[in-house]
Simulated scan of single mutants.
Amino acid sequence: MSNGDQLAVTGREACGCKVGRTARKYALPDLDDRLRERRADGASLRRLETVVNEAVLRAALAATDADVFRDVAAIYRSLTDEETSAGVRTETEAWLSRVGVDPAELEGDFVSYQTVRTHLRQCLDVDTDRNSSLSVDDAEGTIEWARSRSEGIVGRTIERLEDTDGFHSGSVDVTHVVRVSCTDCGASYPVERYLDRGGCDCDAQRR
């Protein structure tokens, strides 16, 4: 068994589906845990498709000797977004080749959301049905995760500007404030207040 295979086995026999094989190939031992956690937080199958494929892309870039400072999410969109022009996709594939990643092999290892669904059901015993409603606590957790991620991205982006000529910044603390506005009644609340009060007053106004 290779080192990648050993890393991918976490107390159980590794599955043989494409997600399992890809996790072993790119040494992603925590991928299953991430999929379980994100699914529990309400992530859609299409979002989990992106989670897997961005992890594969990140691992492929990390395995090269090149210094890579590009946004993995942006690279992934350039390769897969239907609205990406052929020119941008070609440029991205050429850049991958230059840094030591075979774009054809990489894209062949990307998975679809149907493949992720099969992996969740058959390999991880995760229910992929979405008949149950989302609780307020679950919503708060998902929103807080998204806000923290957004703050982290903004903070890291600003830090990368420190060496840019003409740009000066001290120690920064990034805060992302989310507000929810109802276009029906015109009310606007910080998202925490909106959740705590059970939404806006539209239902009361209809009575």
Rank of each mutant, 00 (worst) to 15 (best):
C17G: 07
K18R: 15
K18G: 05
V19D: 00
V19M: 09
V19W: 01
V19T: 00
T22G: 05
T22Y: 04
A23V: 01
R24V: 10
Y26P: 09
L28W: 01
D30F: 06
D30G: 03
D32A: 13
R38K: 10
R39H: 11
R39N: 03
A40I: 06
D41N: 10
G42M: 07
A43I: 07
S44E: 11
R46V: 09
R46E: 12
R46A: 14
R47Y: 03
R47T: 05
L48W: 07
L48H: 02
E49S: 02
T50F: 05
V52R: 00
E54L: 05
L57W: 06
L57V: 09
R58W: 01
A59C: 09
L61K: 06
L61E: 03
A62D: 09
A62S: 10
A63H: 07
A66F: 15
A66V: 14
A66N: 10
D67V: 15
D67K: 15
V72E: 09
A73D: 12
A73F: 04
A74N: 08
I75P: 02
I75W: 04
R77H: 12
R77Q: 13
S78Y: 06
S78E: 05
S78A: 15
L79M: 13
L79S: 08
D81G: 00
E82R: 15
E83H: 07
T84N: 00
V88Y: 09
R89V: 09
R89L: 07
R89P: 05
E91A: 15
T92W: 08
T92F: 08
E93A: 10
E93R: 15
A94G: 08
L96C: 12
L96H: 11
S97T: 15
R98N: 12
V99R: 14
V99K: 11
G100H: 14
V101C: 12
V101T: 13
V101Q: 11
D102S: 13
D102K: 14
P103W: 12
E105Y: 02
E107M: 15
E107W: 05
G108N: 11
D109M: 01
D109T: 03
D109C: 04
F110Q: 03
S112W: 07
V116K: 02
R117G: 09
T118I: 09
